[in-house]
Simulated scan of single mutants.
Amino acid sequence: MAGLALVSAAGLVLDDRILLGQPIWAKPLKFSLSFIAYGLSLAWMLSLLPGARARRVGWWAGTVLTAASVVEMVLITGQVIRGRRSHFNNATPFDTAVFRTMGLTVVVLWLAALLIAVLLLRARILDRATAWAVRLSSLIALAGAAVGFVMVVPTPEQLARPDSPTIGAHSVGVPDGGPGLPLTGWSTTGGDLRIAHFFGMHALQLVPLVLLVLAALAPRYARLADDRVRLRLVLVGAGSYAATFALLTWQALRGQPLLSPDATTLTAAAAIAALTLAGAALALRTPRRLELAA
């Protein structure tokens, strides 16, 4: 994936083709960078599995996931070379076959990730904060990946046309390929399921990052040295992340651009922020029996 990221970056410079309003090499670049982060996180999580049997099952699940990821990227890059759209493409029998194969690889990838999540849920990891950081982040990432299944559902307009050249969409309320944010291409005129998809999947990195920050600060702040405080903060962080993911999904499904939230979305975001701050404050409280002992 690192090698493909370099090739895609070179493609952005050397190939001026545009597809759906974005440089044609932007998609393989974004996907390869995402898979780099995803792969590194999973490798670390698999290293936490205790016992030879769990490690063996985890190795096979990781290998299947890797193979599915490689097939996915080969198909995406092949379509880029052809100058064709990879996702939702139903224009020709070959394009349809490519997209269906991609759909199959995504299902295999998701099931392999689910197996790894089950292994992590059952694993006895000594540090409870670490255990729950990897468990909850893997579950949120699974939910984020599952948003991709929503994207392949045909729109009402596509169902009305049996010969529709596209099946599915990532935008809601507007056609794919309209005005979008720089770099990401996320729609600025309608809902975009890619936002929740991206945010959810990268819980795999961001939730454990909360734990790493807490561990780094522990030598300077006595309360963070308490593993129970770190555990409570991880739970608050994961809960806030999951709530934000749900809000982003809901916002997209209502056809609302990320940067143009309505009053309902803003109220929900404010409630999540308030509950997160309150939860963090409660998590940082030192148990009274420890205060008396001090």
Rank of each mutant, 00 (worst) to 15 (best):
A2I: 15
L139P: 00
S41H: 10
S47T: 06
V234M: 07
T63L: 15
L29I: 04
L181H: 05
I76A: 00
G190Y: 04
W44S: 05
V106Q: 05
P208F: 07
R220P: 02
S240A: 15
P28L: 05
L136Q: 08
A246G: 13
Q158H: 12
L235E: 02
L217M: 15
L258Y: 10
L111W: 01
T249H: 04
M102P: 08
S34D: 06
W44Q: 08
W59N: 08
F99T: 06
R55G: 00
R254N: 13
T188N: 05
P23R: 03
G190E: 03
D227P: 15
L206E: 02
L217V: 11
S240H: 01
F199V: 11
T92N: 14
L209H: 07
A141D: 01
R17V: 12
L40A: 11
G237D: 01
L20N: 14
V64G: 09
A68H: 07
T155G: 04
V98S: 12
A61N: 02
F199E: 02
L159S: 13
T188F: 08
L121P: 10
F149N: 00
T264R: 15
V150Q: 14
H87C: 09
L139K: 00
W60P: 01
W110Q: 07
V210P: 11
S32A: 14
V57L: 10
R285W: 11
Q251H: 10
A273V: 15
A283C: 12
G39W: 05
A246R: 06
R56A: 15
G255T: 13
P162Y: 12
E72W: 10
T92D: 15
L247Y: 00
L114K: 00
P175F: 05
T66L: 15
R124A: 14
L214C: 12
A131S: 14
T155M: 12
A243Q: 11
A243R: 02
A37G: 13
I272D: 04
G200L: 01
T188K: 04
F94M: 13
F99Q: 05
A252H: 03
L40M: 10
G168E: 03
Q256Y: 07
T249A: 13
R223A: 14
R122P: 05
A270Y: 11
V80W: 06
D226H: 04
M102N: 02
G11Y: 02
Y241F: 14
L183H: 03
L247F: 07
P257Q: 15
I81E: 12
A26I: 13
L253I: 10
G103V: 08
L46G: 08
P261E: 09
L292D: 15
L121K: 06
W132A: 00
L193A: 05
I140S: 08
Q256M: 13
A61E: 01
